[in-house]
Write a protein that binds this DNA or RNA. Structure first.
Lengths: 234, 234
DNA sequence: TTATTTAGACTAACCAGTTAGTTAAAATGG
DNA sequence: CCATTTTAACTAACTGGTTAGTCTAAATAA
């Protein structure tokens, strides 16, 4: 029997000696504040650019407390990623469950991913950064979290192709394309807002992006696009 | 009459006091080496992660020479981006010229972009990083280089839609999608190689990606996909 | 002469991580 | 019930390594 709600793969695999508070379900408010602050700082500046002093200040905590809970900057960074990916898996897993058709499942995935990112606006830049640097953190995260999602999504695409519902596409390439379309928009959103002069994360802007992606998928992937989204004759 | 080949917008706008060698067409070999080394380091670690000592060592020059030519790390970074974008504009401009149909122009753009990136493998990570951080460098680069390309590509898409050659799509969204599909693959290529266990920049892998993108564009965008790329019945 | 380049020591700021404790609250024991 | 010990949470101040940028004095082109 494991009394803690999460098996806490992080602790097991990395062998960290984490204080009790970090293992339990209800983490102290300070830990939450540290994680939230770190998430923002790491998203903004990356592992190299983020400053531990700034994180501590943003979390309204003494810097030493960062090292009390997480023993290094590196571990704090890993903890941030781990917490986010755990939530991502939960959110996306829901879209994969059920027994609907490949098309429904694919669209549900896109929707779930969008919703997750809107709830965690720092996620896109954190992943992009991680994917570009690729330390040991990434290898662990790729195996633990990314791979399973990628595999399941591939299966859905392949099922759709097999049933003749989708065009015959390379599922690996398509997964990359789908994720790129979604993530990269939000990764550059802060800058996009600045350059365009309007909020790229505003409701309409996000809705427009979601529509564009779904539209593109319907026509780039599906053999018979839904009539509601089909192009009208000019 | 301007004797230098480039108007050198960088010097003008940023008011840098750059030695003669940097303004002329034939830059000294040392400057080239510095730029090349800096390009690699900035791509790998970003502005915050790159080390000036390492750049100097990689360029086989004394560190002081970095500051002799470029007066700060920040300026060196900007010079690297500027040099790359100047070449990108040249490469892509060629694809925009001529009077072929929108479809040909679009495909030419994708090809030109692919070829440029293959010749400058550091470009994707440099841009991604810049897009995620968004300092004043970026605002300048966006206005000077990105915007014009984006506008021209949009025009091509709109022309294609107007002629009924393309489905009616939002050109801004589509430009984002196209660039995301291309750039993000190469930005994560180093890590992708590591995780997949095979070189993501190998000839076949790159060819597969290019094919997937063109295929997706043909079906996601064009009203009448070319028969050569069309799906076969299962 | 003037522009370029080196060696290498230097500094001032910065920044991850530590130390040596304090505080508060809970557990223990009489 | 009150005194004392323990433990977790938390802090101010410090340490030592790192790093952008500088300086000097000299060598080498062009």
């Amino acid at each position: 029997m494991n009394t803690s709600p999460q098996p806490d793969a992080l602790t097991k695999v990395h062998g960290l000696r984490i204080p009790a508070a970090l293992r339990g379900a209800k983490r102290p408010a300070t830990v939450e504040r540290i994680l939230a602050a770190a998430e923002r700082m790491f998203a903004e500046g990356g592992m190299a650019g983020a400053r531990t002093d700034e994180i501590a200040r943003a979390a309204r905590v003494n810097k030493a407390l960062l090292y009390y809970y997480f023993s290094s900057k590196e571990n704090l960074h890993l903890a941030v990623l781990d917490a986010l990916f755990q939530q991502l898996v939960v959110a996306v897993e829901a879209a994969f469950s059920g027994d609907s058709l490949p098309r429904q499942r694919l669209l549900a995935y896109v929707d779930a991913y969008f919703d997750f990112i809107l709830r965690h606006p720092n996620y896109p830049r954190l992943v992009q950064r991680e994917l570009m640097e690729g330390g040991k953190n990434l290898v662990w995260i790729a195996r633990q979290y990314m791979r399973p999602i990628q595999v399941k999504l591939s299966r859905i695409l392949e099922a759709g192709v097999a049933r003749g519902e989708f065009r015959p596409v390379d599922s690996t390439q398509t997964v990359m394309t789908i994720n790129a379309m979604i993530v990269s928009y939000f990764a550059v959103a802060p800058v996009l807002s600045q350059v365009l002069g309007r909020d790229a994360l505003a409701k309409e802007a996000v809705a427009a992006r979601r529509r564009a992606i779904l539209d593109f998928l319907e026509h780039g992937l599906l053999r018979q696009p839904a009539r509601s989204r089909a192009a009208r004759k000019p």
